[in-house]
């Protein structure tokens, strides 16, 4: 377990190092996630040496949100005064995300399938 934590925390620290060295305003943890995926892909990190700890973190991640959520008690006034803008903007943009993601996937997929079909037809007619 210590080794697994060591690998995960090292990726996190490296991610923060990258952010600090590059002087950019970006979450170091996300760089750390990409470093983890890259390390596994290149075989620098073995899946066995992170799998258990990462599964444990991911399956319990809901707990780690709770303190952030409790901070809501500091913002009751803002939420009360801007309740409807928050609700409407959230619902509308959630619909937009659902539709835009689904439509784009289906559209791009169809364009690429058509291209493949056309190529096959060309190859057959050349024979």
């Amino acid at each position: 377990m210590i080794k697994q934590l060591f690998v995960i925390l090292s990726c996190l620290a490296l991610g923060h190092l990258v952010v600090w060295a590059a002087g950019i305003d970006f979450p170091g943890s996300i760089i750390g996630m990409l470093l983890m995926a890259a390390g596994l892909q290149m075989g620098i990190i073995k899946l066995d040496s992170v799998k258990e700890a990462s599964d444990a973190l991911i399956s319990n991640m809901a707990l780690f949100f709770v303190p952030n959520g409790v901070a809501l008690m500091l913002y009751f006034d803002i939420i009360k005064s801007e309740f409807w803008p928050i609700v409407i903007a959230t619902l509308v943009s959630t619909l937009v995300v659902l539709a835009a993601t689904g439509w784009t996937y289906q559209l791009v997929r169809r364009i690429r399938l058509n291209r493949v079909l056309k190529m096959r037809r060309l190859q057959q007619s050349n024979r």
Binding site: L9, S29, G32, G39, S54, F65
Partner: peptide, 12 residues
Amino acid sequence: LQPTIVALGVPL
């Protein structure tokens, strides 16, 4: 939370 984001690199 931050180590958990790094852990998401495994399913990725």
